[in-house]
Design a binder for these strands. Structure first.
Lengths: 218, 218
DNA sequence: AATTTATTTTAGATTTGTCTAAATTTATTT
DNA sequence: AAATAAATTTAGACAAATCTAAAATAAATT
């Protein structure tokens, strides 16, 4: 079955909200979609007849098996295009999201397969988020933020949660990117900041806000 | 001003019909768009308020200056994506049209610029159709079909009108592609077929239908 | 437990792009 | 030039995705 771009956007949004909690509420989804709760209710009825969501009035909702698979296809396309935009067209990190929001709705399956191969079947997008493979399988990394990793262990930056321009600027200044190896040398309880060290460079301090958003594998 | 994908499709269709004759009729456009004449009338009113077409009821219509520029932007994107699909992703000729029909509506100007550069600013798409540059300028070739070029002059295949799978199959069999150098050695008036020669290969005969669709520069 | 508050749903309206059927205008033919 | 045919437009309707305002249900508080 095919879906409109709007339906796909709802499906994707439900998927992301379900990562936090299994059943999703109307108001929460309306906030994420920048629509009114009434519009969400209308859409849920449609998605229910398409067997994309389990939904009973007043009881919240979540994706069916089919809905989940559909979400993963959309996310796969989104992240493959982000990879393309950054690694082939030279876009910056923070510029790609909106364009990828449009590209993810291009329907051709053949296109997705060929794009995936052209890019070398990447497992992670430029922000470090995993790209589902053609079966919908996701590589899960055991990640922890700079707030949570043990002190003095070398870690590799694997993803960055906040994908704003401002964050990118700051990380560029610190010379931190996906794949950067670093260690947390000290933590300061007063403000939650952390001292980090990259190679032989002099140690620097990153704020709690930064530390919360930068994830590493050990 | 921005346009919906549907509006863009109408604009592009009007552009193509205008190549044949300067003013376009409702029925002709409805046939091209696979809609009813009444729907075309509705859309024309909208495009008129957007100053995309000159239109007076019962009198036909054509694109304004603005409409023309808009059409060229859409065609530019369509052909750049076709080039990408064939030359980077390895699609065949005849598979790319439908996908490019979707991709041409992606709105980011930055994307178009970067894609163009990534591809090396190509002047012609895989079918030999010219790709408008960022100013809307088109490289016009003095082309003639195999029916019209003089006998025994070496010519270079520059474009193919019919872009079907069947045509591609036949041209692959003859080893004819964009850029192939050949000459017409004889013509047969009975059925309009032509004998052609490519390099040192033995001469072959192509039907009138093929000859009409293959265009060359001298 | 009753009341108040918050959430969710329904009802009815709007916009976009389409349709059919009927009316109008233009073109063609006798 | 009148009659017929063809093309075009109008009028009114429908589905999709949204909205506002009001009603219904659930959750929280006294």
């Amino acid at each position: 079955m095919t879906h409109t771009a709007t339906e796909e956007n709802y499906i994707k949004a439900i998927y992301h909200l379900q990562l936090a909690s299994d059943t999703v509420s109307t108001t929460l989804l309306s906030a994420k979609m920048n629509t009114k709760p009434a519009s969400v209710t209308d859409m849920l009825k449609k998605l229910r007849t398409k067997r994309i969501v389990h939904y009973q009035r007043y009881k919240g909702f979540n994706l069916t098996e089919t809905g989940n698979k559909t979400a993963l296809v959309i996310i796969r396309k989104h992240r493959l295009w982000e990879y393309f935009l950054v690694n082939k067209l030279g876009f910056e990190w923070d510029e790609v999201h909106n364009v990828a929001e449009e590209l993810e709705h291009i329907s051709s399956e053949e296109l997705t397969v060929r794009l995936d191969n052209f890019l070398g079947n990447p497992a992670f997008d430029p922000h470090g988020d995993p790209i589902p493979d053609h079966k919908g399988k996701i590589k899960v990394l055991k990640q922890a933020s700079l707030l949570a990793i043990p002190v003095k262990k070398i870690a590799t930056v694997s993803s960055v949660k906040n994908q704003s321009r401002e964050m990118l600027d700051l990380l560029n200044h610190f010379k931190i990117g996906i794949g950067t190896k670093l260690k947390v040398t000290r933590r300061f309880d007063f403000d939650g900041s952390a001292e980090i060290k990259i190679d032989k460079q002099p140690a620097t301090i990153v704020s709690k806000q930064v530390a919360q958003n930068v994830f590493c594998i050990l």
